[in-house]
Design a protein around this nucleic acid. Structure first.
Lengths: 197, 197
DNA sequence: CCTTACTTACTTACTCGTCAGTAAGTTTAT
DNA sequence: ATAAACTTACTGACGAGTAAGTAAGTAAGG
């Protein structure tokens, strides 16, 4: 792995763990084993490094989503949700970064990333429209459905500690802290049920 | 309104708009019309001010949720979702702060707040259990249902600009940017449908 | 095949701005 | 008079970004 790739990898860990502002490039440099100026050799500034992290992830995701066959609406919707879920499981840093980005109003999301998010939404929109044409789904606001899928999943990862605190507070509420992997098919089934005519 | 209350109000605006780290107490002080040291007269440090903001909001929310009559599961669930939604509409600063807190893993959420969040979850859990006992709902993970309710709603507010960007990218995907008020009953119906046996 | 010119990929050592937090003094209300 | 509610003016630390230097490699010319 090149130094540049290593910088991206370590930076994505820091951005994920502590957020953009608290992530210190001094720390990133120290962990990579280079000087801070080496980061500035490869990236124009802190934000360019963040862009590199974000774009690589959103690019991978968009590729996966793009492959989904949208002809059978229910199967396609399940695959859409499960693909997204699997991506979060595979890329543990992505959940927190994405969640922060949404919470932040996607204020500093590079154009290329928002374009790829748009493509994902377009895919979902087509799936829903096909379902509507076949009288399987009712007419829906695609963005809202997107939010129903994306936000519970990305925030599930980020709230692990919160679940522990809540479980400590409430002894009678059980079985709260389930693995993300088990949550995904459950959410998929619920959303499909909610959308079916 | 006392200076202290005014500080909390302005601070909550800044925390909401730019997040904890970027919110500068110099800016808060300037907008309130006091010196920064006046903030330190009323609050031990920046985090204590943040706690005050957070606790006042979570306290109000918990009071509202606590009043819900949980005997009729479906009506109670609808009221739970709509009360939460209404709270977000009434307190526009809360969405972003809550969203950031969840994205952050609720790392710096004061105990008193996580306790009140636990109480909300307990209410939801009771509603679900009553529904289960009456064979209206299946057995559910209350935390996951909580996430399905809370995360789309809080992130809906924060993603207004993202929706505009997406709509500019995709001309054929229409009617995405609906008011939060209209989203709430829609989400409530969908979640109830998803949970019904 | 070896020297010169140039590039790549860094390092060291700094600057500069911002911002949380404070010490000490001042005004205001009771 | 004295306590509460401030203000002024500062410190100290941290972190983004940079200027200047350098070792190692590559290409070109003689």
């Amino acid at each position: 792995m090149s130094k540049k790739e290593k910088i991206i990898k370590v930076a994505s860990k820091y951005f994920s763990e502590v957020g953009y502002d608290k992530a210190s490039l001094d720390d990133v440099a120290k962990e990579v084993g280079v000087s801070k100026a080496a980061i500035y050799y490869h990236f124009k500034d802190k934000f360019a490094l963040y862009e590199a992290v974000l774009c690589s992830r959103f690019g991978e995701l968009a590729k996966i989503i793009d492959k989904i066959d949208e002809s059978k609406p229910i199967e396609a919707l399940r695959e859409y949700i499960e693909s997204f879920g699997k991506f979060l499981v595979d890329k543990p840093c992505f959940s927190a970064i994405f969640a922060r980005e949404l919470a932040d109003g996607a204020m500093n999301m590079p154009q290329s990333c928002s374009k790829q998010m748009s493509l994902n939404l377009q895919k979902l929109s087509k799936i829903l429209q096909n379902g509507e044409a076949e009288n399987i789904f009712a007419k829906e606001n695609a963005f809202m459905v997107q939010m129903m899928i994306v936000t519970p999943l990305i925030n599930y990862r980020t709230t692990k500690k919160l679940r522990e605190v809540v479980m400590a507070n409430l002894r009678d509420v059980k079985n709260i802290d389930v693995d993300l992997e088990d949550i995904i098919p459950n959410l998929a089934s619920k959303i499909i049920k909610a959308l079916k005519c």
